[in-house]
Design a protein around this nucleic acid. Sequence first.
DNA 1: CATTAGATCGTCT
DNA 2: GACGATCTAATGA
Length: 199
Amino acid sequence: MSFDRALLERPATQVAPLLLGAVLSHGGVSLRITEVEAYLGGGVDPGSHAFRGQTRRNASMFGPPGRLYAYFTYGMHVCANVVCSPDGEASAVLIRGGEVIDGLADARLRRTSAASDRDLARGPARLTLALGIGLGDDGSDLALPPFDLTLAAEPAEFLTGPRTGVSGEGGGAEFPWRFWMPRETSVSPYRRAAPRPPK
DNA sequence: CATTAGATCGTCT
DNA sequence: GACGATCTAATGA
């Protein structure tokens, strides 16, 4: 197989740095992952979809590691996670950014609004679009076609900070679970969670 | 570069 | 009924 599944049987916070530099392929496009965020289960992570236990949407997070957790948000976007932790325990790593290294033509066709090649997969929703990942792919095994995930041979150098777009308790400095590779232009710009209007 | 508004709908309370 | 693990286009410095 394309990756050691046992490596993913750990909490997402430990798996996240291992995914930096890994290559994810789907839909004729391959990209080198440069930015991720970790989300835990067990009720310890207020920013996680699994914070209040299992629901229909987050069921994949509770499944075996090495599968895809894809969800729909903001009425129009799909985001992709790599499921971590043993079967029955929920945690996942959100893939936030990457550099397209193969299938540039296909990626451009799906991302007609991208201003430049570096924007093709810069941001979680842009990334799923570039790869052609949809809700129907939720639960797919990333080690099997049409997917492939190959971890980097050498551990990547990385930086950490607060997670992007997470509001409430999970958005603070107590959860510095965003991981990215320094000097990579495909890392998405940090955005604070949108504050709700004054009344 | 920075900030802002608007789009848009499934999910959970 | 409110709120998103967001993006794009538009505007101003």
